[in-house]
Nucleic acid binder design. Structure first.
Lengths: 244, 244
DNA sequence: TTACTGCGGATTTTCGAAATAATCAAACCT
DNA sequence: AGGTTTGATTATTTCGAAAATCCGCAGTAA
């Protein structure tokens, strides 16, 4: 029964998960949208259970929120969330950088240079609008990961990756409106240099600024898209987890 | 069809989730155990789909790991993971404390004292073995949460809570073997005092030590229960998420 | 008019069977 | 004998229908 396509060893739920994540990040599914099962079922051509599985995982990633027994929602965006997200990312990323520089070996340095090279070459090939390409987003993500891959903390890296994904959605929202992004590639090169030179303090500051300036850019050009909704309500998580 | 019990407004999956979490933390489901659906189905008296939902959420909390299309596993424990978890918790908790002290108001201070009082009174009532009680664990969790509740960062608080849960399992493993825990309550009081006095640096250091000493305690008395398994393999997460 | 209650339609949540994939062991080839 | 393929068995993943729940609205009473 030839479905879309079912790559090697990939579970159906995983495939839907990836497609939905992509659609949420690209805002094909707009923030705050109610996700009705019937609609999704025909959109992604899978059954209720499979959808539910994917939705559950997206809730874990913070891209979808669950409302008790009233269904699911694309996680809303807001100025408050963006600022909070940015602060947490800076905290985590600074620590990752520090640990990676302390613990990284030659192999780690080589991987960074390789990741940068791949990203750099793709930018040249794609020209001015590289930032709109999914392929570039992947290489960009891989580059930033390579910088901190040697930090030696699986837990920190997992947290970092989830935050990076969430932030990606905000970045996409602004790139949509700002064809001429400022030259991130220069910053990337500087960060790489300072990291490989094991200059912890400077590397941390550069990454800090890299993140915060991007946020400022988003706020300047895309904040009109954000929900004015209350600072508190937009962040209710479904599960009070343990306490109470 | 009178099932166990179905409290107000609680979804079945949520109930199973809570029970499984409790069983994993208490090690009724031992670390590293393969979770077969048929077994779980009769143990928790629910269907495949409902189980799958609960399992998915537990994966998000890091208490269960998924192995491709080869089923689920209770997340293994290891010395490496415990140490890593501890380091990340210290990073997060220090930041939470700092922000809460910067931003907390009178109401926040009052809530801390109330949470401490409830925990303290329960300890008196239960006597020497209070730490084995689930009720105390809840109040203990609530107390630590109250300290940082005013930090103003939903994202940081969510991360903190998940890490706290994971650490809880390790704490349980050692309390099982060490009936006479050292007097945590004195530490709790000191922390509360320094937090309310807005003495950020000291409060951070106390919490830091509070966490690290507990970890040392666990290592000293329960590390023989840990898997010797490789430092890397025990932490594979199911989903490479975005980066390739 | 305003607040409360009970019905009807829509949506989510749960179920267990059917399809798909992995595991294990015996037989087969080299 | 060692290693590989095949086939039977077991476990997981997916499906769509059935049950439970929620939401809006009409009708009634204060």
């Amino acid at each position: 029964m030839g479905n879309t396509l079912k790559a090697a060893g990939e579970t159906r739920a995983g495939d839907v998960l990836a497609r939905m994540r992509s659609d949420i990040i690209s805002c094909a599914l707009k923030p705050g949208t109610k996700l009705r099962f019937e609609t999704l079922r025909e959109l992604y051509e899978v059954s209720f259970s499979t959808l539910r599985e994917a939705l559950s995982r997206l809730v874990a990633e913070g891209l979808v929120v669950a409302e008790g027994q009233r269904g699911f929602l694309v996680a809303p965006v807001s100025l408050f969330d963006l600022n909070d997200l940015t602060d947490v990312r800076v905290l985590v990323e600074r620590q990752c950088i520090k640990l990676a520089i302390d613990r990284g070996d030659d192999r780690w340095e080589a991987d960074i240079m390789a990741a940068f090279h791949r990203m750099d070459r793709l930018q040249s090939r794609l020209g001015a609008s590289y930032y709109l390409s999914d392929e570039w987003a992947t290489l960009h993500s891989a580059f930033h990961l390579s910088l901190v891959a040697a930090c030696g903390s699986p837990n920190l890296l997992e947290i970092r990756q989830k935050l990076f994904e969430r932030a990606h959605r905000y970045r996409r929202m602004s790139s949509q409106f700002r064809p001429q992004w400022r030259a991130k590639d220069v910053e990337h090169k500087m960060i790489m240099d300072r990291v490989i030179a094991r200059d912890t303090a400077t590397a941390q500051d550069l990454v800090d600024r890299h993140i915060r300036e991007t946020t400022e850019n988003v706020i300047a050009h895309a904040s009109h898209l954000f929900a004015q909704s209350g600072t508190a309500d937009a962040f209710r998580r479904p599960d009070p987890v343990a306490a109470e």
